[in-house]
């Protein structure tokens, strides 16, 4: 564990707390993509099934349980308690275009040919693009509540912090995880456009609005 990874994980944790706070404070899931949240549940379940078979650390186990349960809870909030505030008509990204290619990539690129390992690869590839329905929705509506942009910024920061973590591990431990690194760089790149608007508008006290 190094500081980049630790702060990355904390940023990930914070993003979920911000998301739950947004839903609670506005009593609404408006502006959130159900598809993205459902993809995150898929990602966490696919990757963290090993919580039953592998033990890394107490920290690792607790985080896995937190990510699986909190992402499922968000789905419940979107489809249960706050269902009336969810608008599926603007959440139109076709997730099958993500699931299919990620499944194919996982069948081609993995470290071992076993069910859990292929599932692990699938979750890595899927996580890298899981934010797309949300970004697509943002693009479509052209605006976002400030609190929602803080959620996205924390999520993006988590991914960005993993990159120096890999560089650090490369020279301190001499290890490299090509699948995670490749997917992680793609994932971080997807946030660049969002970050540009976040830094130039939201952090200057303006509303998140995209030029028409």
């Amino acid at each position: 564990m190094n500081l980049f990874r630790f702060f990355g994980d904390m940023s990930h944790l914070a993003s979920i707390l911000i998301l739950l706070y947004k839903i609670h404070a506005t009593r609404s899931v408006r502006g959130l993509s159900f598809k993205t949240q459902a993809l995150y549940v898929t990602v966490f379940v696919a990757r963290y099934l090993d919580v039953f078979t592998e033990f890394v650390s107490v920290y690792n186990t607790l985080m896995k349980i937190f990510f699986i349960s909190s992402s499922c809870f968000v789905l419940y909030l979107m489809k249960g308690r706050y269902r009336p505030t969810n608008d599926p008509s603007i959440d139109t990204f076709r997730v099958e275009y993500l699931l299919g290619p990620c499944a194919l990539l996982a069948l081609i690129f993995h470290y071992r040919w076993s069910f859990l390992e292929v599932l692990w690869s699938f979750s890595i590839f899927l996580e890298s693009v899981a934010i797309l329905p949300q970004l697509f929705m943002l693009q479509r509506t052209g605006e976002a509540e400030t609190i929602t942009t803080h959620y996205l910024a924390a999520l993006g920061a988590y991914r960005a912090l993993y990159i120096p973590n890999w560089i650090y591990r490369y020279w301190s431990e001499d290890v490299i995880d090509p699948i995670a690194v490749t997917a992680g760089i793609v994932q971080t790149a997807l946030y660049l456009d969002f970050f540009y608007v976040y830094f130039t508008k939201v952090l200057q006290g303006q509303k998140f609005e995209l030029p028409a």
């Binding site: 592998e54 896995k64 071992r112 993993y162 995880d177 995670a180």
Partner: peptide
């Protein structure tokens, strides 16, 4: 460098 294949990251 060697590939980790160890999934110790989240």
């Amino acid at each position: 460098a060697q590939e980790t294949g160890l999934h110790d990251e989240l």
